[in-house]
């Protein structure tokens, strides 16, 4: 059982399980699936200052969401302890080759050690990928009013035009980063 679960799950299993997550949140407390609002609640709970965007009753509106994301962390712990698999992520051979040309090896682990690790943070590439990338994710998610879960899954499932617009934006940005910025960032340091 554990061995089967430790293998990577196919998309046609994992995708519907995301739907199960959405369903359980609706059933438990009529909650709308979304992750990035938790970032706003963390800011509101810690350093709201005088900012109207961060001064609200986060316990009332956001406590469930904070507990939900704490659960995601817990799920990570559980997976790390009992369900991890040592094999490299089974991405397409063409992607492996493209990334190898940029100096990134897919040699086991979920993340590329060359850029996405604590040791790599002091290199320009590692800093830009993790710190700048993370910053833009937070900034953009709140500007757009949602992330991959809130717009990409929940918004689309609720047939929201704004979410479709946001996803087109996600892809425009992602394509620019992947095809223009990453080659610049990686080409300069690893070759």
């Amino acid at each position: 059982m554990i061995e089967t679960l430790s293998q990577p799950w196919p998309w046609y299993v994992a995708g519907p399980l995301i739907g199960v997550t959405v369903t359980l949140l609706l059933l438990l407390g009529n909650k709308t699936f979304g992750v990035s609002s938790s970032l706003q609640h963390v800011c509101a709970a810690t350093v709201p200052g005088q900012n109207p965007y961060l001064c609200y009753d986060w316990r009332q509106s956001g406590l469930w969401n904070l507990v939900f994301v704490l659960g995601i962390v817990l799920g990570g712990v559980v997976t790390g302890l009992w369900l991890s698999s040592p094999e490299p992520v089974a991405i397409a051979e063409t992607t492996v080759a493209d990334l190898a040309a940029l100096g990134i090896a897919n040699d086991g682990g979920l993340m590329p050690e060359e850029i996405y690790s604590l040791q790599a943070l002091t290199s320009p590439a590692g800093f830009l990928v993790v710190v700048l990338g993370g910053f833009l994710v937070g900034f953009g998610a709140r500007w757009a009013g949602g992330c991959t879960s809130g717009h990409g899954i929940m918004g689309l499932a609720n047939l929201q035009l704004p979410s479709l617009v946001a996803i087109v934006g996600f892809f425009i940005g992602g394509l620019v980063s992947t095809h223009l910025l990453l080659p610049l960032i990686l080409g300069g340091t690893t070759r």
């Binding site: 997976t79 996405y116 940005g173």
Partner: peptide
């Protein structure tokens, strides 16, 4: 806001390869 914020989010997603949900999951991992 949707396309502007979306593009900024996408730029970050393309670089970091992680949106907020995965950040939490990887932290626990």
């Amino acid at each position: 806001r949707y396309w502007l914020g979306g593009i900024v989010f996408g730029l970050g997603w393309g670089l970091a390869g992680t949106c907020p949900g995965p950040m939490y999951a990887l932290l626990g991992y």
